[in-house]
Simulated assay, not measured.
Amino acid sequence: MRRVVVGVTGTLGSLAALHRAAAKARVRDAELRVVLAWQPPGGELGSRNGLGPSVLAECRTAAVERLREVLDTAFRAAKPGVTLAGLAVRGTLGAALVDSARGVEDLLVVGTGSRAPLRRLLRPSVARYCLAHAACPVLVVRPSPLQIELGAVHRRNFWRIPLDPRELTP
Protein backbone atom coordinates (compact mmCIF):
# COMPACT_ATOMS: atom_id res chain seq x y z
CA MET A 1 0.00 0.00 0.00
CA ARG A 2 1.22 3.48 -0.83
CA ARG A 3 1.94 5.82 2.06
CA VAL A 4 2.36 9.52 2.59
CA VAL A 5 4.65 10.02 5.58
CA VAL A 6 4.80 13.31 7.45
CA GLY A 7 6.70 14.40 10.55
CA VAL A 8 5.01 16.52 13.19
CA THR A 9 6.12 18.42 16.25
CA GLY A 10 3.07 20.59 16.91
CA THR A 11 4.49 23.79 15.43
CA LEU A 12 2.56 25.80 12.84
CA GLY A 13 4.97 24.62 10.15
CA SER A 14 4.46 20.96 10.98
CA LEU A 15 0.67 21.42 11.03
CA ALA A 16 0.86 23.00 7.56
CA ALA A 17 2.93 20.02 6.37
CA LEU A 18 0.39 17.64 7.94
CA HIS A 19 -2.50 19.26 6.06
CA ARG A 20 -0.54 19.20 2.79
CA ALA A 21 0.29 15.52 3.40
CA ALA A 22 -3.38 14.72 4.03
CA ALA A 23 -4.32 16.38 0.73
CA LYS A 24 -1.61 14.41 -1.11
CA ALA A 25 -2.78 11.17 0.55
CA ARG A 26 -6.35 11.78 -0.65
CA VAL A 27 -5.15 12.40 -4.22
CA ARG A 28 -2.89 9.32 -4.21
CA ASP A 29 -5.43 7.14 -2.37
CA ALA A 30 -2.69 6.38 0.16
CA GLU A 31 -2.36 5.85 3.88
CA LEU A 32 -1.35 8.93 5.87
CA ARG A 33 1.40 8.00 8.33
CA VAL A 34 2.07 10.71 10.92
CA VAL A 35 5.42 10.40 12.75
CA LEU A 36 6.41 12.14 15.97
CA ALA A 37 10.00 11.42 17.01
CA TRP A 38 11.09 11.55 20.63
CA GLN A 39 14.31 11.16 22.55
CA PRO A 40 14.95 10.50 26.23
CA PRO A 41 16.21 13.35 28.43
CA GLY A 42 19.83 14.01 27.53
CA GLY A 43 19.45 12.25 24.17
CA GLU A 44 20.63 8.73 23.49
CA LEU A 45 23.87 9.30 25.38
CA GLY A 46 21.93 10.43 28.45
CA SER A 47 19.72 7.34 28.36
CA ARG A 48 22.80 5.11 28.69
CA ASN A 49 23.79 6.81 31.92
CA GLY A 50 21.22 5.42 34.29
CA LEU A 51 17.74 6.26 33.03
CA GLY A 52 15.51 3.44 34.13
CA PRO A 53 12.79 1.75 32.09
CA SER A 54 10.12 3.73 33.94
CA VAL A 55 11.57 7.06 32.71
CA LEU A 56 11.72 5.79 29.13
CA ALA A 57 8.13 4.52 29.39
CA GLU A 58 7.02 7.93 30.67
CA CYS A 59 8.80 9.65 27.78
CA ARG A 60 7.11 7.36 25.27
CA THR A 61 3.71 7.92 26.89
CA ALA A 62 4.24 11.69 26.76
CA ALA A 63 5.18 11.44 23.06
CA VAL A 64 2.06 9.39 22.27
CA GLU A 65 -0.08 11.93 24.12
CA ARG A 66 1.59 14.79 22.22
CA LEU A 67 0.89 13.00 18.93
CA ARG A 68 -2.79 12.68 19.90
CA GLU A 69 -2.92 16.40 20.73
CA VAL A 70 -1.34 17.34 17.40
CA LEU A 71 -3.79 15.16 15.44
CA ASP A 72 -6.72 16.55 17.42
CA THR A 73 -5.55 20.11 16.74
CA ALA A 74 -5.04 19.44 13.04
CA PHE A 75 -8.22 17.50 12.33
CA ARG A 76 -10.64 18.71 14.99
CA ALA A 77 -13.00 20.37 12.51
CA ALA A 78 -12.79 17.81 9.70
CA LYS A 79 -11.41 14.29 9.44
CA PRO A 80 -8.51 13.80 7.00
CA GLY A 81 -10.57 11.55 4.71
CA VAL A 82 -7.85 8.88 4.46
CA THR A 83 -6.55 5.97 6.51
CA LEU A 84 -4.53 7.50 9.32
CA ALA A 85 -1.68 5.87 11.27
CA GLY A 86 0.18 7.67 14.04
CA LEU A 87 3.67 6.61 15.15
CA ALA A 88 5.67 7.83 18.13
CA VAL A 89 9.23 6.78 17.25
CA ARG A 90 12.28 6.94 19.48
CA GLY A 91 15.09 8.71 17.63
CA THR A 92 15.81 11.86 15.67
CA LEU A 93 13.07 13.17 13.40
CA GLY A 94 15.03 12.95 10.15
CA ALA A 95 16.09 9.34 10.70
CA ALA A 96 12.60 8.34 11.88
CA LEU A 97 11.01 9.86 8.77
CA VAL A 98 13.46 8.28 6.33
CA ASP A 99 13.01 4.91 8.04
CA SER A 100 9.19 5.21 7.91
CA ALA A 101 9.15 6.09 4.18
CA ARG A 102 11.17 3.22 2.75
CA GLY A 103 8.97 2.33 -0.23
CA VAL A 104 9.69 3.76 -3.66
CA GLU A 105 5.99 4.65 -4.05
CA ASP A 106 5.88 6.47 -0.71
CA LEU A 107 5.91 10.25 -0.44
CA LEU A 108 7.70 12.00 2.40
CA VAL A 109 6.37 15.43 3.42
CA VAL A 110 8.41 17.74 5.67
CA GLY A 111 8.12 21.36 6.75
CA THR A 112 11.09 23.70 6.56
CA GLY A 113 10.74 25.40 9.93
CA SER A 114 12.81 28.34 11.09
CA ARG A 115 16.28 28.60 9.62
CA ALA A 116 17.67 31.46 11.65
CA PRO A 117 21.49 31.36 11.82
CA LEU A 118 21.61 30.44 15.52
CA ARG A 119 19.03 27.68 15.08
CA ARG A 120 21.04 26.23 12.17
CA LEU A 121 24.01 25.83 14.47
CA LEU A 122 22.02 24.21 17.26
CA ARG A 123 19.66 22.01 15.27
CA PRO A 124 20.35 20.50 11.84
CA SER A 125 17.75 20.74 9.11
CA VAL A 126 15.35 17.80 9.01
CA ALA A 127 14.34 18.68 5.46
CA ARG A 128 17.94 18.57 4.24
CA TYR A 129 18.52 15.25 5.99
CA CYS A 130 15.42 13.77 4.35
CA LEU A 131 16.36 15.09 0.91
CA ALA A 132 19.81 13.53 1.23
CA HIS A 133 18.77 10.14 2.62
CA ALA A 134 15.21 9.31 1.52
CA ALA A 135 14.60 6.55 -1.03
CA CYS A 136 11.30 8.12 -2.10
CA PRO A 137 10.21 11.56 -3.35
CA VAL A 138 10.30 14.33 -0.72
CA LEU A 139 7.89 17.27 -0.67
CA VAL A 140 9.22 20.23 1.34
CA VAL A 141 6.49 22.58 2.59
CA ARG A 142 7.63 26.16 3.07
CA PRO A 143 6.00 28.33 5.75
CA SER A 144 3.12 30.48 4.62
CA PRO A 145 3.65 34.27 4.33
CA LEU A 146 1.33 34.73 7.30
CA GLN A 147 3.47 32.38 9.41
CA ILE A 148 6.61 34.29 8.42
CA GLU A 149 4.96 37.58 9.45
CA LEU A 150 3.83 36.03 12.73
CA GLY A 151 7.41 34.95 13.44
CA ALA A 152 8.63 38.49 12.75
CA VAL A 153 6.06 39.90 15.20
CA HIS A 154 7.13 37.40 17.87
CA ARG A 155 10.80 38.36 17.40
CA ARG A 156 9.90 42.05 17.54
CA ASN A 157 7.99 41.51 20.79
CA PHE A 158 10.78 39.39 22.27
CA TRP A 159 13.40 42.06 21.63
CA ARG A 160 10.93 44.86 22.55
CA ILE A 161 11.39 46.68 19.25
CA PRO A 162 8.73 49.38 18.79
CA LEU A 163 6.36 49.02 15.86
CA ASP A 164 6.29 51.78 13.27
CA PRO A 165 2.63 52.31 12.16
CA ARG A 166 3.84 52.89 8.56
CA GLU A 167 4.81 49.20 8.45
CA LEU A 168 1.15 48.22 8.82
CA THR A 169 0.03 49.77 5.54
CA PRO A 170 0.47 47.72 2.37
Rank of each mutant, 00 (worst) to 15 (best):
G13S: 13
S14H: 07
S14I: 02
S14V: 01
A16I: 06
A17K: 02
L18H: 00
H19S: 02
H19K: 09
H19M: 02
R20A: 15
A23V: 10
K24E: 15
R26H: 10
R26E: 12
R26D: 09
R26M: 06
D29S: 13
D29K: 14
E31T: 15
E31F: 05
L32T: 04
R33T: 13
V34F: 00
V35K: 12
A37K: 03
A37V: 07
A37S: 10
G43D: 10
E44L: 10
E44G: 08
E44K: 03
E44R: 08
E44D: 07
G46A: 09
S47E: 15
R48E: 11
N49V: 14
N49W: 15
N49D: 10
N49Q: 14
G50C: 08
L51E: 04
L51A: 03
L51Y: 03
G52Q: 07
P53E: 15
S54K: 04
S54H: 09
S54C: 05
L56S: 04
L56Y: 02
A57H: 11
E58R: 10
E58G: 11
C59S: 13
C59W: 00
R60S: 11
R60W: 01
A62N: 11
A63F: 07
A63R: 05
A63D: 06
V64M: 08
V64F: 01
V64W: 03
R66C: 03
R66F: 06
R66S: 15
L67K: 04
R68N: 11
R68L: 04
R68C: 06
R68V: 05
R68Y: 07
E69V: 02
E69I: 00
V70E: 08
L71K: 02
L71G: 02
L71E: 02
L71P: 01
D72Q: 13
T73A: 15
T73H: 10
T73P: 00
T73S: 13
